[in-house]
Amino acid sequence: MFEARLVQGALLKKVMEAIKELLNEASFDCAHSGILLQAMDNSHVSLVSLNLRREGFDKYRCDRNLVMGMNLSSMSKILKCASNDDIITMKAQDNADTVTFVFESPKQEKISDYEMKLTNLDQDHLGIPETEYSCVIKLPSAEFARICRDLSQFGESIVISCTKEGVKFSAAGDIGTANIKLAQTATVDKEEDAVMVDMQEPVTLTFACKYLNMFTKATPLSPQVCLSMSPDVPLVVEYKIEDIGHIRYYLAPRIGD
């Protein structure tokens, strides 16, 4: 028996918004410690890794490990039926071929349940090594979304260049060039407004706008985003999900001309 009850059901709705453009389907690996999801986009250029710890749920039961393959377009349709203040429970029997979503309104006057068929997915599970990154940049997530959106008008790629002075985002194309420089903030009233740069060595990498823009669909999950870069390895874009976990996107850099 698997059962996970989330009082802040809106978080699950936001998680869905954060992955559904990138992924058509994904396996939810449910274990005693929580729920993990790892999946590549269709073109295998990026990877999504979602971690929801059991402690973040107000009720969590997983008697045996369960892999639930879900069509995310179907799951999204179902989660759209939940109100933002609903409590959401996901549950499934062991070896079941369906999962049930239960939505409870805060005062319990409306309770809905939706059963969805599971699908068998044969997905590669990739090993992500623990890495010390050369540059770790924290910035407000809305600022990052704005930068990606603005620079996408200029070209298909964004160059991210991190030095000890700060971080520079650049794009170039037919209409011209654009550069946005963010300096590390000295003092801020709110930590979530800060720009912080932790640099061991300067790094400049180029990434496809299309994917960065899809990652920014996670912006409502967290006021801050963390970008980690090292030479010639995938960028990590991480959004914390309150006290429950995180979503990380990995994106292969663009190389050559």
Binding site: M40, H44, D124, H125, L126, V233, P234, Y250, I255, G256
Partner: peptide
């Protein structure tokens, strides 16, 4: 510009 598969960086486990 070319782009390698993410599988080049992270091997199947």
């Amino acid at each position: 510009m070319a782009q390698k598969s993410i599988k080049v960086y992270f091997k199947p486990s």
